[in-house]
Amino acid sequence: MYINAAIAISPQDTFLKDQIADEVIEHNGIMKTILPDFKEYFKPIDLRRMSRIIKSGTTTALECLKEAGIEKPDAIITGTGLGCLEDTESFLNKMIDNNEGLLTPTAFIQSTHNTIGGHVALTVQCNEYNVAYVHKTISFETALLDAVLMLGEGKAENILVGGIDEMTQENYELKKRVNLWKKEPFSNLNTYKSDSEGCIPGEGATFFNVTKTRKANSYAEIKMVELVHKYENIDDFKKLIENRINNSGITINDIDLVLFGYNGDDNGDAYYDLLKDSIFSKSGHAYYKHLCGEYDTAPAFALWLAVKIFKTGKAPDNIFIKKPEGEIKNILIYNQDINKNHAFMLLSK
């Protein structure tokens, strides 16, 4: 499967850009996305019903189709951990405020997990396969896996795949109570250096166009998408991952760079160290959550970053833990959630 277009709205200046700036944009607290002017994309009468995530998701999807030179995809597959949270909160709060009566329809209609997939389909008049995967931290990888299977079975020629999540103030405050976040102030620039519990919340909207065959504008080939719920024995897990990579057409020694999902939480980051310092010790090492924060579909941002490394032939210095020698031809993206939902995406140039 090949990636022909990649567009991201993130807490960095990434929209319609080909690379991260050398100077990382610093955030303290929630890493909010940097938004384009949506008035260029939607009429005011349409914009008024669209929350931040709907505007971001739909815009990235439309720009992705534009970059791929496709008017209408054969399928739209999205992944999201929490869906359109702002509208969900708005609807639920109104239920409480109005004692479960006098509820308005707009927030309810827009609060589903497939709202963005639906918006994109309506915008480009696509009546084909349209599915949203809501699988917590493997939501995006599951959507991507579905695309791999669909293309493999010949059920589609080109697919739009995306990962979208938003962080609201209310969600932030709720999870703060269970110490999920770093104590403020905490800069995203210190993510990898952190030696404490908790991470930095982020958000983002990222879309890709994928096809079964290589096109003139293909940037990367997805060689493997592998999901492991959890493991009991680290040695068995290492063997499993090594076997899967070796079955993908390249060997583990061919991986030039591993992009880890280090998020600054000691509890979870230790699990990355176990593979970084063993089966991936010979590869270059990098991380990305200081750029986008932690959210369920953050690996979609990592995939965008990897695709752009292939497209430009350059990688920003700020991502490296250990810089690889020579050209980067194979990148492995690894994300997990404290020994749950281990997800690997292997890409080749």
Partner: peptide, 9 residues
């Protein structure tokens, strides 16, 4: 029509 529902509320 969605606006009509909003106005009724």
């Amino acid at each position: 029509s969605i606006d009509a529902l909003e106005l009724i509320v």
